[in-house]
Amino acid sequence: MIKKVATARGRTLGAELRDLRKKVDLTTRAAAARIGWTPSMLNRTENGLRATSAEEVAMILGAYGATGAERERLLSLARDAETPGWWETGDSIYPSPLKALIGFESQAVRITNIELALIPGLFQIPEYSRAIMRAADIPPLEIETRVATRLGRQAILSRPAPPKLIAIIDESALRRPVGGPTVMAEQLRVLARLAQRPNITVRVIPFHAGAHAALVGGFSILEFERARPLVHQEGNRSLSFVDSPTEVDSFVADVDTLTRTSLPPERSLDYIRMIATSFER
């Protein structure tokens, strides 16, 4: 479990620095001594748990003997990590775990989302999101802020190089009339359209499949180009992240099982459209 929330860009930069340290055959202790840091300080930097300036990265690169194109690439990455994302600017209206999640989603190359009770947030239309929040007695003004945040998160699906998104959704999420039949029908039509994009795969776990590996709770696996994958779990009032390789592997194994349990993509698409039609009657 990540005790302190890491940043996505910090984890990517940290992974690059860790790879470079290993490339020059230095232990964490030996490398820290060269830099003039403590081993724990270097370890936190490599895990993305400590903000690192471009100047500090230049110092690390000097200690490791990095030169030329590799040095410039890592310095550029460090400068990018210092630039705040849209969710990090201005007043801190987002809690740290949510800011971390948005950052991770923005950097992920592949997201696998397992959902039991609701349509995944990256697919939700505003009316559906508002209905969920009203049911939780969230104040109207806060609802609009949260809906805008959710729409901002969804922008990753329309960027030039979007992540690969795999959603495995329990049938109960498709049947629950959140916002009423009209809203639910529109939500399912939007889900069906999104499922046809080349970077998006949606699979449905039908009721007749019986018990399955995710009945204890949904989760998301976020994978990155350089940093280790991590798992995001959302509770009623909290978000948590897991990045222990052993624990992440157990979630990956669950996804393999759920893929076999769920309907193939084309049959899932037909299933979603069939349920949408039932709401339209």
Rank of each mutant, 00 (worst) to 15 (best):
A108G: 01
I102M: 09
R159Q: 15
S92D: 13
P140D: 14
E127V: 13
Y94S: 05
S129G: 06
W87R: 02
P140Y: 14
I143Y: 01
L116Y: 10
F123W: 12
D91W: 12
A155S: 14
E144H: 15
K99V: 06
R153T: 04
Y128R: 05
V109C: 06
G103C: 03
I102C: 01
F123E: 01
E127H: 10
P95C: 11
R159F: 10
L157P: 05
G152K: 03
Q154I: 03
E115P: 05
I93V: 12
M133Y: 15
I111S: 02
W86N: 08
A117C: 09
K99R: 15
G90L: 06
L116A: 11
P126T: 06
R159H: 14
L98W: 11
G103M: 01
T112Q: 13
T149A: 05
I111N: 00
Y128H: 08
P140A: 15
I132M: 05
S129Y: 02
V109A: 02
A155Y: 05
S158M: 12
A81Q: 05
I114S: 13
N113S: 15
Q107V: 04
L122K: 01
I102D: 00
P126I: 08
R110P: 07
N113W: 05
I102Y: 02
A131Q: 06
A136W: 13
I138S: 08
I114T: 10
S96Y: 13
R159P: 09
A135T: 13
I93P: 00
K99I: 09
E82W: 15
W87C: 01
T145M: 09
G103L: 01
R159C: 07
P120N: 08
E142N: 12
Y128L: 06
L101H: 00
A108N: 00
Y128T: 06
Y128I: 07
I102Q: 00
W87L: 03
K99G: 05
I156V: 15
Y128M: 12
Q107Y: 02
I143P: 00
P97V: 02
E115C: 08
P126H: 04
R134Q: 10
L151M: 14
T89E: 06
G90P: 03
E142A: 08
M133N: 11
A131L: 12
Q124L: 11
K99E: 06
S158T: 15
T112Y: 04
I138G: 07
L98V: 11
G85P: 02
P126E: 06
V147S: 03
